[in-house]
Design a protein around this nucleic acid. Structure first.
Lengths: 218, 218
DNA sequence: TAGATTGTTAATCGATTAACAATC
DNA sequence: TAGATTGTTAATCGATTAACAATC
């Protein structure tokens, strides 16, 4: 009765990208798109696009293709954009501040509601309309303000402790920028964790450059 | 004669994570580790660890396991850590500055050498020991200073133009933070591109939270 | 109706896991 | 030598691609 056919993470990771392309088509006033046309633009196979979209429903029409407006609305709804997530940031250092000021998140249904730190020098400072609060006021804040996601922009040494504190408050999503893995948080608290291991990603780039030079050059 | 068995990207993406764990073992003075012990710590199968490491060589020893110091050195070498990459940043906005100030990159062999912008208000400003230069001086800078990687921290509207400009200068790696795909750059210039689509990643988190609430709660 | 394009099943490909012989 | 654990081959699993009947 619940139709849970468990969609694979590979498909889910492609959704935001579909959303970007469909939004662009919509903004350019393009009314319909076929899987073939979209495959050309996105550099995917048409087959994969049809498979992916069909995980969520038959949004297309045989002989016609996909109505861009319909598809845009459907993907937005799948991604939960219609009702926004409230986001707090833990750590008002360089990365925390950069995220707080990043305007794109708003457009995608993420609302920045609070930022916390333990450093007295930044507490009270205004960042994108929100005052940095002391980390010890976190619990009170979350009790009074619906909070969906906490962004961890803190050194890895404190990451685990803060993650447990945040998860214990019933916050359902953790966006982890501290370069460490948050073991057992998902299992223990049922909190969802997404990691942004920037250094890891940069190292992959480094590896690929080395390969390129080894193979391409000589 | 070149032993190019083409290592899959899935394996390469795990390398930095292996490196983190091995570094930790090394710092804790642990001399040896078996694939089983590592699998427990990293939450991977021992089989996968052995397969992965064997793509690059037989670093272990039957009946013993892996010598941590050896393994650390080998992975570092695979990732090109021994000889550093010079990195410039294009765009001195919030994200560009956060990256410029991020200390972890240094430890992993990435050296911040320049930062460029077109906004007169930030040009000349000192960021982590480097002065923001005008984007028009980019070409001269690269001619005089070996540059391996350019980080794009600019709005998506300018991303493609700047990417082509950077690639045309012979810079081999592009780390793209502008939320757009840099079509054809790899093919046309032979430049390696790694994308950090932060908003995409955040949207995946949003999706997973929605699923959690739908399935877990009722 | 004829043409186009989806939705969906089947075939292929690649990545992960299991098993075990080699060997320290 | 006996025990442990790798390196490596084979089996399994899952994701992508191809094919085509359904249908607009």
């Amino acid at each position: 009765m619940d139709g849970n056919k468990k969609i694979s993470i590979a498909v889910i990771k492609r959704l935001p990208r579909y959303y970007r392309y469909i939004t662009e088509l919509l903004e350019n006033g393009i009314a319909k798109v076929s899987s073939q046309e979209l495959s050309r633009r996105m550099n995917l196979t048409a087959s994969q696009i049809r498979q992916d979209l069909n995980c969520f429903g038959g949004f297309g029409q045989q002989g016609y293709g996909y109505n861009v407006e319909v598809l845009h609305k459907e993907i937005a709804s799948i991604l939960g954009i219609p009702d926004p997530f409230n986001v707090i940031i833990i750590g008002a250092g360089n990365m925390g501040q950069a995220i707080a000021k990043y305007e794109n998140f708003n457009k995608r249904g993420f609302v920045f509601t609070g930022i916390f730190d333990k450093n007295p020098n930044v507490i009270g400072q205004d960042i994108n309309g929100v005052k940095v609060a002391h980390i010890d006021t976190l619990e009170d804040f979350v009790k009074e303000n619906k909070t969906d996601i906490a962004v961890l922009c803190i050194p890895k040494e404190n990451a685990m402790e803060i993650a447990r504190r945040v998860a214990a408050l019933g916050i359902h999503g953790l966006w982890n920028f501290s370069s460490t893995d948050l073991h057992n948080i998902e299992e223990e608290f049922g909190t969802v964790v997404e990691n942004v291991h920037l250094t890891d990603n940069l190292m992959v780039l480094g590896y690929r450059i080395s390969e390129l030079r080894k193979n391409g050059k000589n």
